[in-house]
Design a protein around this nucleic acid. Structure first.
Lengths: 209, 209
DNA sequence: TCTCGATTGAACCCGTGGGTTCAACATACT
DNA sequence: AGTATGTTGAACCCACGGGTTCAATCGAGA
């Protein structure tokens, strides 16, 4: 194993640790209240080391949020991909996907990411746009693609897939926001299921074949 | 006119001016970035005068948000009240109410209130709960009441009014959030109409008689 | 063992801004 | 006129925290 690799590996690991710690602390305290000293402590690293890897607090924030957004997007896309094989019971498949989506929305990282970006609209409007593009728009596009296929397969009535996707997501995220207190607390599993089933029921009444 | 009244009136007016200025500045800058000096300037008042009426920055924030939440709630309830006389065309009435609701969601004060409270979840979780109770829950209750009557009148199919209200609101606010960039920019009137009409269409397909 | 780069902790600088003090002043009431 | 209350501006105190500096230290490779 080449030496240079272990060295740069160590560097990368520290950088990752710092970014993870940054997201953690930002998520708990918010941008203004998060102090770099605490981030360094959580990362198990000295404060100058933080500034050695990331230029300043703002860079720290952007990189941490970027990484989290990528992770959440991947998670969501993986769920939507399950609609590729709708099987013989589209309702069951949709309920399964819907349930997995609300569970994803309910996990720690998604909730933190959402309110954290929302909270910093005033200071970093572009961060909000970037995150929303990756988590909101891309998800809607992917879902619209799958719904279009369901229309062609005769499982849904003819409609505009983009609208249908927007509506299904709204029926999922709206009730979730209310129940999670703007993403501050976890929602009981039973309610997750109920939200998913109800949303799919309304969706199929409106868009079913 | 009694003198004492002019005196206390002057006091009240200044207090109101300070709270209005506070909400204005908080909405533009966010809590951490808003400085009391600027609030005083906007209110046309000296800094010690601010501290003379409100104890500290936190009180300033809470009172300003409280007042705004009350105003927004009143605005929303007034709109929902229009469902009391559904007329002979429930779809038209629902579209009218839906359009007025999204317009309310889109106005300056509502958008500011929403992201401002959302942004301060970490520091003041109870403020979020209070605002959400007044703007979200109370609105959903009022709407559920009206929908229940529509069910009895045979304009909607038998259903759980609370669920129906939640779904209609989700179909309205979900697309609005996406289009307004998390409440940061105004949405063109044409899109407001489209969101309202689409939402009501889906709603009636799912809940129509 | 020697070297070089990364890391560390601690101290430091300094801008920002919440909150207070105080003497001067305005206004309204007696 | 005299008094009391509220207001003003300016200066002040002080905590907090971003960002930097530096000498000491550590660890991997030659």
């Amino acid at each position: 194993m080449p030496v240079v690799e272990t060295a740069s590996r160590a560097r990368v690991d520290k950088r990752q640790a710092i970014l993870a710690a940054a997201f953690d602390v930002f998520a708990r305290r918010g941008y203004a209240q998060a102090c770099v000293k605490e981030i360094a402590e959580v990362a198990g690293v000295a404060k100058p080391t933080v500034y050695n890897h990331l230029n300043d607090k703002e860079t720290l924030f952007r990189q941490a949020v970027d990484a989290a957004a990528d992770a959440v997007l991947a998670q969501n896309l993986a769920v939507v991909e399950r609609l590729r094989e709708p099987g013989d019971d589209p309702r069951a498949t949709l309920e399964d996907v819907a349930y997995r989506l609300v569970r994803t929305c309910d996990d720690e990282r998604s909730r933190s990411l959402k309110w954290l970006t929302y909270a910093q609209v005033a200071r970093f409007p572009d961060v909000v746009d970037a995150v929303h593009a990756r988590t909101g728009l891309r998800l809607a596009e992917a879902l619209a693609d799958r719904l279009a296929r369901l229309v062609l397969a005769g499982h849904l009535r003819p409609c505009e897939p983009a609208d249908a996707a927007e509506h299904l997501l709204a029926l999922l995220t709206g009730p979730m926001e209310a129940r999670s207190g703007f993403g501050m607390r976890k929602v009981p599993t039973a309610q997750l299921r109920a939200v998913a089933v109800n949303a799919v029921d309304v969706f199929l009444r409106a868009y079913g074949a």
